[in-house]
């Protein structure tokens, strides 16, 4: 018995296609199909999901035959700090107000890099905040309050 070796990059890629294909197929299945002549909301997506599933399987099969480039290192720290930054802004821009929200957003994103020193991060965030205030609040009068109700304004 020969052990089947699966290439990681293509294996994961195929698996991702399959999972996404199944997700969309399942969701489309719940909807009205209609007919080819009067298609329902589920018809076209189910067709596409089927194609995605098929492509995923092809990639999986390829993965057992050929090796491709390795995945390489992952930016864990980056993901942990870059991704929440915009969400933080969205959740706090009304409550905290525009200035604190943008300051902290820039600060969170700053620490995604190991090279960033705390002092630099603070100065940088303050600079971004000042610039944004001048351009967006004063210049373009975007309808966000500089300080929000959570801070007692």
């Amino acid at each position: 018995m020969k052990i089947i070796h699966i290439d990681t990059t293509n294996g994961l890629c195929g698996a991702l296609f399959v999972v996404l294909g199944l997700f969309f197929a399942y969701q489309s299945w719940m909807m009205d199909m209609g007919t080819a002549l009067r298609m329902g909301p589920g018809y076209f997506p189910l067709l596409l999901a089927g194609i995605l599933l098929l492509l995923g399987i092809i990639v999986l099969i390829q993965a057992t035959r050929v090796a491709s480039e390795p995945i390489g290192p992952l930016a864990w720290r980056g993901m942990l700090l870059i991704l929440p930054a915009p969400i933080f802004f969205g959740l706090t821009v009304r409550g905290l107000g525009f200035l604190p929200a943008i300051f902290i957003t820039a600060l969170i994103a700053s620490f995604a890099s190991m090279r960033m020193k705390p002092i630099t991060a603070l100065i940088l965030s303050a600079g971004v905040t000042l610039f944004s205030y001048l351009v967006f609040s004063r210049g373009l009068s975007l309808p966000y309050r500089p300080f929000g109700p959570w801070l007692g304004f």
Binding site: I82, F89, I102, A106, A109, S110, R115, T120, S125, S132
Partner: peptide, 17 residues
């Protein structure tokens, strides 16, 4: 590392607006 906090801040404003 100086550039991307700036990028993140502007993206957040731009997309939210």
């Amino acid at each position: 590392y100086i550039l991307f906090p700036i990028i993140m801040a502007f993206c957040s404003i731009g997309i939210y607006s």
